[in-house]
Each structure stands twice: as C-alpha cells, then as structure tokens.
Design a binder for these strands. Structure first.
Lengths: 362, 362
DNA sequence: CTGAAAGCGCTAACAA
DNA sequence: TTGTTAGCGCTTTCAG
C-alpha cells in the first residue's frame, strides 16, 4: 500500500514471496523471520540451549521443519573450533586390508557425528603433501594414516602441529605417536599352538618377503610357539618368498622333495600361499588334513572358503582395529594425549583344513 | 610506554607477542597485521586478484609463508557458495567393485581441488538418510551414489533438491538421473566373439543368479554374439547359479556328464566361477585350453593370475567409470544438466586360458 | 593501488 | 523470556 518493500511476511502460513525456492538452502534468518522471532531466539530453539518458552520453541521448530531448514555446518564449524570432520590418508590405495579398517572407522566416527574425508596418495609423497594441505585447509579435527601392509612409514609432515593423528595398520618411529597394529606374532602363535594341540609334530612355515615386518613377526611367533610346544623350529622349515599362490606351490615342491622329515602341517603367511600349498599337495597326492594340516593368515573369505578343504586362517580383526582407531582419535580430539605402539589381538578362524573336528575328540 | 595495549607490532620481523603459537592456525588478520597492510589487501595478494603493486604482493606472500598461514576453507566456502567437497554414498560397503571406482573418482576430483566424504550405509535406509542429512549439512557440492552390483536402487531422497547426483555402478528409474554402468552385454560379446574367432564352436555360459541385471545382460550378449558368429545358443548351455567357485565346479559337472555335444569353450559370469570351472575340468581330465577354452568376467587379478592357466577375462574398466563419474559430476556442478543411463565399454584381457596364442596363427 | 566495511550463516554473551 | 550485537575468517564491492 504505502511503498513498503514486498518482503514483509503475510501473517498466514502462505509462502512469503514467490522467489524460486530451489537454489540455496534456507538460512536461520528465514526461519526466524517466518516464525516471527529474532534470529538469536531461533538459534536457541534449534539448539535447545538457553531458556525459552515452550511455545516459542515449538513454533520455531515447526517453522524450521516446514521450511526444510538445515543448519549450515560450515558456519557452525567456523564458530565453534570444530569442523566435525577427520581425514583418512592412505599411502597405498585402499585395498583388501585397509578397507575393513576404514569401514569400521567410518562407522565409529559417524556415530559421533563426524564425517570422514578419504584421501589416497598411492605412494606419492607430493600427492600426500597436497592432500594434507587440503585437509588442513578444511580444518579437520584429526587424521588417520594407513598404509599397505603395516609397514613403517615416514611421519606425517610436522606441518600438522598439534593435530591428533592415529596411525592405523602403519607405524612410525616416534614414540609420541599412536600406532595401532595387529599382533602378528600372537596370530602366528595361535596358529601353531592350535596345530600342536591337534598333535602335529613337524610344522613348517611358508611365508612372504622378509622385508615385511609382519613376515618377521609371524616367523618369530612360529618359532616361539613351537618351542613352547616342545617342538623344534628348523630353519630349513621356514621358507620365505612372494605373497602368491604360485609361491605356495613352489614352496611345497621344495619342502616335499625331501625323502624324510616331511612336515605334517603348514603354517602359511597368507591365504593365497596357503591355497597354493593346498593345490600343490593335492597334486603330489597328499591329502588334507589327514597327511598335512594347513593354516593360513588373513582370513580372506573368498580365498579361505573356496579352498578345498576350506582354510583355517588367522584373522587380524581389522574391523576392530579400525573401530579402535576411531575411538582413540575421538579421545585425542577431546584432549587426551595418547601415544605408543599398540598391537591388537588376532583370532583363529577354524575351518576344515587342519582337521580340527577329526582330531578334536582324540 | 603510555598504556598502549601490548598488541601492537614491533616493526622488525620479530614475533610480535609471546602467545603460544601452537593452537589455532594463523588467520588472514595475522598476516595482514604482520605485513603492515589491510586485511583486504592481504586477501587480494593471496588470491592474486585485484590490482596490487608487486612489492606489496611479494611482502604479503612472504609474511604468509613465514607465518605458515593456511586459508580457512570453511570460511571461504561460507562466502563463495561452494564447499569444494562432494559425498560418496555407498549402499553396500565398499568392496571389490566399488573400490576401483571410488579410487578413480577421488583422483579425478582431487585434481580439481575437491575433497570427498566417504559414507557407507550398508543397506540400511535409516543410516543412509542420516548420512545424507550430514552431507547436506556440510553443503557438499554434489553426490555420487554407488551400490553393490550395478543393481537398481531407490532414488536418493528428494530432499536433495537441485543437488547434482551421479549414480555410478548403480541406477534408478528416473530418466532425469545420470547413471553410469558398465556395458555388460558388450563385455559378453567381446568374450564370445573372441572365442568364436579362435574357432570354438560350442560355447556354454555358466553364470550367476538371474536376479542380477548384469547376469541377464551378459546372457543376452552371449546369445547375440553367438548368433552373429553363426553359432547356436542352446538354453541347456546356459547355467545360472551362485557367484562362487563351488558353483563353477558344479556347473561343469553338470555340463560334462553329457555323452555328446560337449562344450569346447566356457564363458563364465565371473572369475570365481571360471576358476571353479577350471579346477573341475582338470579333475575330469580335460585340458585347458586345448579341450576347453575359458573366459571369465571381472578381471580380478588375484583370481585371474592364480588360475592355472591364467584366466582370460572381461574387464569392466571400473577405474574409467569412476573417472567418468567424477568428470560428469564436475560438469553438473558447473551447471550443466546431464541425464540418462550410459553404459561404458568393457574390454577383454587375454591370458592363457583360451589359447589365444596357440590358435591365433591358425 | 590500497583501505574500510558489509556480509556469508551461525553462536554466545550481554542487554532489555 | 527474548532481542541485540559482536564476532568466527574470509571475499568483495566501493571509496579514498
């Protein structure tokens, strides 16, 4: 009527103006305006903070819903000093091992309302730096670093001063860093003591490349558990090679070309080696588990289940490791100081390849 | 001297105060102050925008570096309407198939400075909704939706009004949606025509469960390519079952218990089935590729390479699919309107299992 | 060429 | 109980 700009609200719930509703989300001001309260009041209502009359609060909430209002996290984060995001940085691309970790981690963090940025640097330090740069720019609240095979890596750029970091399935030398790893040695012990308990006397070990820390630890576990069981660990019974089925076959050929002292059990460094070993044993007429019992490592289902007979295998419980990493990161974010290298327990998944059931009653 | 607050700068480059430098990153104001320019000028210098004297710019840049200044993306995003983030939402957990896609996608997007939020909803609609809610709150610029096995899924909540969405390795009914899928039928044709060209006359098909769209398409490709090659597609030569090695073995037993019309080639729905088939064929004394040639699907390296002989297999080029999804999403974010269901080409990776080389010269 | 100031959307301390 | 206001850190007109 009187030259007022057309942007005052009609009192009834009708859409205030005919602007396109699509682009740009509703803002807190929209809600406040439509509810006829101040913007501060609207904020209080939506955050259930401060003292407020029940009706105002209800009104605001209702309007907010009808407007499909969704608070802008970016703005919130700018204010509070928390972005509610963390980055996960993988040296290697995410593969069979990192994935269960990441999945569990995501789950754990999501429960606390934290979203995760996925960054893959594939062994490229420059790329890693750029990723880090990006994450810091986005003001992530923390960082999880993973790698291929639980190998030692260089520490994350000191750039990340004060930023909580958890190394999961990877580790660095710094004693102030928190590193979470599977207990490879313990896993090996589980396998060996299981076999020994089943009455196996000569347990050979076919494993991967020695430059992997995991390989060395598993070998150590093999030795330790053997001697605890009163069995000998002969160097000639420990063969190190590649992580492949082909190597499993070759190693079996090597072991069984002897005329005496043949193994009655094989502990393999991973499930692929184990499967290769099974195939090779069958090729030379040995039956499993009667003649030779087999235990693998990784408990990679597609492998373990497809092997004939299905493979008993050590599980690194990577899901648990991921969840633990998430929990630890949350702790650190909330100010606690965590450090040290922690090894999480493995477990043994028993299938048919070592004749547990056949021997169990004996 | 005269009651001035102590926060004016000493003119030389010395650290202005002795506040702890650790917590909280440097802000633009810190830089401006230390460089002795206005905050607006500092901004211009850092963004190489506006007209500015070379020396001022150099000065600001230098100070910024010495202060280890890193712009706060959150604040930037708040201002520009772009968060430079996208979400990737997986119905299924990220597995063997989604992973190559996600990896390539991440790579493509990272090249454009976009970070990606990884969300895993594992078939839980409520969880999916919460994830979506979170992503919208974080004002992602776009969304990629993946699923287990290129299966049809329900559209993302209409909530995401106007938000660019690409369905990768998954699809919905809406013709306005952009869906990227591998060309399963074309992949099957590649396999069959390869075998036919090698002189195989009776090519059977052992595949997965028919409720998978991919299974139906691959079967269609098998039929079409056979007839194009002048060969018959007999219903009894197409066996549908599980995606496992065990099924591959069973199917071979089924096919080869016939007294005549035995297949001289097998096209398998995935590499696991193919591997099972190979094992079973060897068990009944058929040699590969002489008696029976085999082609698998997925080109899953660990499987294909470990099979004896190594498996020729159809590759869905999931990396390319992921990169394409990324490119398409970028297009949509920059305003282009893309829609429709696009099928990306597969390719054939030749190994020894169909005797390509032996027959090639014939 | 540079500085001042408004504002992105939200929160929190302080007034009213 | 509610409104006002001053930022969070940055960009961008618009004056000087």
């Amino acid at each position: 009527m009187n030259g007022l700009p057309p942007d005052d609200l009609s009192p009834e719930g009708a859409p205030p103006r005919d602007v396109a509703p699509a682009p740009g989300a509703r803002t807190l001001r929209d809600v406040a305006q439509a509810a006829g309260v101040s913007i501060g009041t609207a904020s209080k209502a939506l955050n259930a903070s401060g003292r407020l009359s029940a009706e105002t609060r209800a009104k605001v909430l209702e309007v907010a819903k009808s407007l499909d209002y969704r608070p802008n996290d970016l703005a919130q984060s700018l204010h509070r000093a928390r972005s509610m995001t963390v980055g996960i940085l993988s040296t290697d691309s995410f593969g069979r091992f990192t994935f269960p970790i990441v999945e569990a981690l995501e789950r754990r963090l999501f429960d606390d309302g934290i979203a995760i940025f996925m960054c893959n640097a594939t062994d490229d330090p420059a790329r890693e730096r750029r990723h880090l740069e990006q994450l810091l720019g986005k003001r992530v609240d923390g960082l999880v670093v993973t790698a291929r095979r639980a190998d030692k890596r260089a520490p994350i750029e000191p750039v990340a001063r004060g930023l909580p970091v958890v190394y999961a399935f990877s580790y660095i030398d710094d004693p102030d860093a928190l590193c979470l790893l599977p207990d490879d040695e313990g896993g090996a012990r589980l396998a060996i003591s299981h076999l020994a308990r089943l009455g196996r006397k000569r347990i050979a070990h076919i494993t991967g490349p020695r430059h992997f820390e995991a390989v060395r630890l598993r070998e150590a576990g093999w030795r330790a558990a053997l001697s605890e069981a009163g069995l000998a660990a002969r160097d000639s019974d420990c063969l190190s090679g590649r992580w492949s089925e082909a190597w499993g076959r070759e190693a079996v050929a090597e072991l069984f070309k002897r005329s005496r002292d043949l193994p009655d059990a094989l502990f393999c460094g991973n499930d692929q080696i184990a499967r290769g070993a099974v195939d090779a044993l069958k090729d030379i007429g040995r039956s499993i588990p009667e003649d030779v019992a087999i235990v693998g490592f990784d408990n990679w289902n597609v492998m373990a289940d497809a092997t004939r007979p299905p493979l008993t295998s050590v599980d690194m419980n990577l899901g648990a490791l991921g969840a633990e990493a998430g929990a630890a990161l949350l702790d650190m974010i909330s100010g606690r100081r965590l450090a040290g290298l922690r090894r999480l327990p493995c477990s043994l998944v028993v299938r048919a390849s070592c004749g547990a059931h056949a021997h169990a009653g004996a």
